[in-house]
Design a protein around this nucleic acid. Structure first.
Length: 479
RNA sequence: CGGGGCGUGGCUCAGUUUGGUAGAGCGUUCGGUUAGGGACCGAGAGGUCGCAAGUUCGAAUCUUGUCGCCCCGACCA
């Protein structure tokens, strides 16, 4: 067995420099390339295929709940953006403006959508008149632009891929139900498919979406203990409806404002996939999201029959419903192994002359590197079993890491010590006062992540000011 | 927007202190040998040194300006 370092010489080890490790993995797995516009990334086939799988599987889940897809404009007139006060204040600092069409200066400048609440409001105003028109549960897949100061592939880019759902309902209850329903869709998807455990809860007023009455979030913990907000669902009440005049005639013949929601999940979750599951050899993809689940690697492929056998195995595995490729490139086997590992392909099948003599193949699991010699007659069953075990154990491992890195603090000294010296989240009681939130951020650079739905009383007083506690809340350093 | 770093073949970089007309490794192309953890030999292709102005007989190197990127902080999915 060769020295391990040879396998990964191109990737900076996580422990040495986590940020550099992340960048290396993104590049070596060929997920993206940088474009000539700062913060705009070009998603390459390996990266886009992951996003395609996310879109397909999430979209299917949306549609089961009655979501309909639409396509909305890229541009928003300044006047439209400005209709909701909190919203425009929140987004104005980071929008890109179009001032010219061809050579003509525009009478009114247009912003490139940073999010599309205002556009959906414009649409709903024109198509909702009666309670019979409700609810409207629309979603769009697309990109938006936010002029970020600093950018990193997937985690924070100027233009990013996402979906944004926007709904209008007759009652506050219906809107709130939808808000929570979509948060649960996100949580289930991220946990079941991406194998990333999340904490569900509500954002504080300080952290909530510009224009929302309440924001709910799923928070994931990266390998370095930092938080990544991985999906959000907002309850708007009638704020936008009042600003945009979206009213309907109810059964009682009264004119009423609609109650709205919006919810979004972005390609940022690919960053979470990398930072939750990746290791020093590169990406590790959960089988359910991997664009290629099995790579068949022929050994000594020039020898008669080897390539043919590899293709035959691919056929068998495909017939069993798996996504399979054969690496028939003119590289050495060692190269191909490393390549498969960097790209995070869950299982590889090694097939060479020695195996063929014995009607067997070697199958290797990406996350644990567990090797198994299996009879070709039972190949598909064994590979499937391995994929299932991997999916399951990846989630369990991540969950174990998440919960073992959440610590309770009752006093402020304890809190500061934990934030400074331990990776992960800290759980405390909080008085609900924004002043304490600001002080904590000032003192420790940690921000509130969420107030979990399952509330407990772990102390009677706020960890910061000592006043009576109102909420159990998670804190952490965030991406 | 503050702090730090960096712009030289596709990539990573050396050369800049002391000015003399551009180099290495990797990749790539062709030919051959190899093959169970990043194989090897031989031959080739590929660069107005980020951009602009200046100093000089002569600038990758010195001066001034400018643009861009990366990393760390303040804000966001």
């Amino acid at each position: 067995m060769a020295k391990d370092k040879k396998l990964v010489e191109a990737i900076t080890p996580m422990d040495v420099d986590f940020a550099q490790w992340y960048t290396d993995v993104v590049k070596k797995a060929e997920l993206v390339s940088y474009s000539s516009v700062k913060g705009c990334m070009m998603m390459r086939p390996a990266g886009y295929a992951i996003w395609e799988n996310i879109m397909q599987q999430l979209d299917a889940r949306f549609k089961e709940t009655g979501v309909e897809n639409v396509g909305m404009p890229l541009f928003i007139p300044e006047s439209l953006l400005q209709k909701e006060k909190d919203h425009v204040e929140g987004f104005a600092p980071e929008v890109a403006w179009v001032t010219h069409g061809g050579n003509e200066k525009l009478e009114e400048r247009l912003c490139v959508r940073p999010t599309s609440e205002t556009l959906f409001c414009e649409l709903y105003k024109s198509i909702v008149g009666s309670y019979r028109d409700l609810p409207k549960v629309y979603n769009q897949w697309g990109t938006v632009v936010r002029w970020e100061k600093t950018t990193r592939p997937f985690l924070r880019t100027t233009e990013f891929w996402w979906q944004e759902g926007h709904t209008a309902h007759a009652t506050a209850e219906d809107a709130m139900d939808r808000t929570i329903q979509m948060l649960n869709v996100y949580a289930d998807f991220v946990q079941d498919v991406l194998a990333i455990p999340v904490l569900k809860g509500q954002k504080t007023d300080k952290e909530k979406f510009a224009g929302a009455e309440a924001t709910y979030t799923i928070e994931a913990m990266m390998h370095d203990g930092k938080a990544l907000q991985s999906g959000t669902s907002h309850y708007f009440g009638t704020g936008f409806a009042e600003a945009f005049g979206i009213q309907y005639s109810d059964k009682d013949n009264q004119l009423k404002y609609v109650h709205q929601t919006s919810w979004g999940l972005s390609a940022r979750v690919i960053g979470a996939l990398i930072m939750v599951h990746g290791d020093d050899s590169g990406l590790v993809l959960p089988p359910r999201i991997a664009p290629t689940q099995v790579m068949v690697i022929p050994i000594a492929q020039h020898k008669p029959g080897v390539l043919e056998k590899a293709e035959e195995l691919k056929g068998i595995l495909k017939a069993a419903g798996l996504k399979v490729k054969v690496d028939d490139s003119d590289k050495s086997p060692g190269w191909k192994f490393s390549e498969q590992e960097m790209r995070g392909i869950p299982v590889r099948v090694e097939i060479g002359p020695k195996d063929m003599e014995q009607n067997q193949a070697v199958i290797v699991r990406r996350d644990t590197r567990e090797k198994k010699i299996v009879s070709l007659d039972a190949l598909a069953e064994n590979v499937k079993e391995m994929l299932d075990a991997m999916q399951h154990e990846m989630f369990e491992r991540a969950k174990e890491r998440l919960y073992s890195n959440i610590r309770d603090a009752k006093t402020y000294d304890e809190f500061k010590d934990l934030i400074a010296n331990k990776p992960g989240f800290v759980r405390t009681m909080w008085c609900g006062d924004q002043a304490c939130e600001m002080k904590i951020k000032e003192d420790t650079s940690a921000t509130s992540r969420c107030m979990p739905f399952e509330q407990e009383q772990i102390s009677d007083v706020c960890v910061c000011c000592g006043k009576p506690a109102k909420k159990l809340i998670y804190w952490g350093k965030a991406y």
